[in-house]
Design a protein around this nucleic acid. Structure first.
Lengths: 190, 190
DNA sequence: ACTGATTTTAGTACCAACTACTAAATGAGG
DNA sequence: CCTCATTTAGTAGTTGGTACTAAAATCAGT
């Protein structure tokens, strides 16, 4: 139970609280075998907020994450659109979109961006994907900015044919040919 | 500022706290134009925990949600697998997977299930989707149980050809032909 | 209008987990 | 031994409550 020096203790304290933000000063005092006051002094010096504030931070952060996830109804941000003609979207690959081990984007997000764009470019209340021919040309990695471009080739008889190309740094990573069904009845998309 | 009756107030209280768990009794008292004691009585009757407990729940629960999201590396639960041959997975359509307005599953989740299954069935450290031909036969709706079956047609020269069929209640909703690249180097999938 | 029950307020004591502050005790180095 | 840094102790005050008692207000039925 050798006590740490101030420096050491504060370093480890930071780590510990990072690992588990739910530790009270009391427990931390036990862990480091010092008084509560010392822990409080440490937190003050390191400007680590108190337990409740930490918990609240965790809670609000996670709430934000959930919100941003439900925003993913349309994957990617539409940056230019000419209805029934063509559209452009940007999708930034974040932690949630990649495989942990190799940081390669999961294919379905790339697909989702393209698919969402197809739905968006069609100016009708109902738009469903009927079929698609897709090709993954190269991998997208964490933090890549994927630009997707959809071009409507033709639209008639409630069917639209759309070509999508997705690029990272100008290099093609994905290409897809989408056949969509649309209708002015119904209320939404798919 | 007509005051609600007890029943009404408690119903709305529940909703309010569900929407925003960060409301103190004090603020709730203001909102409903009643005393703090009344709010506390209400919470007691409805067994709604106090603010701090609520926040803590959000913090811990949402951490779990994030974890379950990373579990979605494989979308759907694999229920049977014969490596390099065939596999079966179940994917239950939940709130997060559908368009709010019409409760139709977003296509990319259906695609993701199929794609993940292809990755899983290949018993190699690296498996990437090269291309796919897919067809959405009919819509999947909220709470549907989608059963996906992948059959490996052939594997050679680091390329696998896989057919996937997804069904709800025995009816085909999705069919896809996947061409995968695999390798025993690298460490993961895509 | 009166009564009895229901609902709402008020008020007190207590709790956890603190902050902010003062002050005393303990170390460690020169 | 003296001194400065570090640690500990202790007090008062805060937030957002619980648990409890009791009074006041409101409502419902006769």
């Amino acid at each position: 139970m050798a006590k740490y020096k101030k420096n050491e203790r504060q370093e480890i304290l930071l780590e510990r609280i990072n690992e588990d933000p739910f530790l009270t000063d009391e427990k931390l005092a036990e862990i480091f075998n010092v008084s509560i006051q010392t822990i409080r002094l440490d937190r003050l010096e390191l400007s680590i907020p108190e337990l409740r504030a930490r918990i609240k931070n965790v809670a609000t952060e996670e709430v934000d994450k959930i919100k941003s996830l439900s925003l993913q109804e349309v994957t990617g941000e539409i940056i230019d659109i000419e209805l029934n003609s063509q559209a452009l979207s940007l999708f930034i690959i974040e932690e949630g979109h990649v495989f942990e081990k190799n940081e390669i984007a999961r294919g379905h997000f790339i697909f989702a961006q393209a698919n969402s764009l197809c739905v968006a470019v069609i100016n009708e209340p109902l738009a469903l994907t009927k079929s698609a021919d897709i090709e993954f040309k190269r991998q997208a990695k964490l933090h890549d900015k994927v630009i997707s471009k959809a071009v409507v080739n033709d639209m008639d008889n409630n069917n639209a044919s759309i070509t999508v190309e997705s690029k990272v740094d100008g290099r093609l990573i994905f290409k897809g040919q989408f056949e969509m069904y649309y209708s002015n009845e119904g209320d939404n998309n798919g």
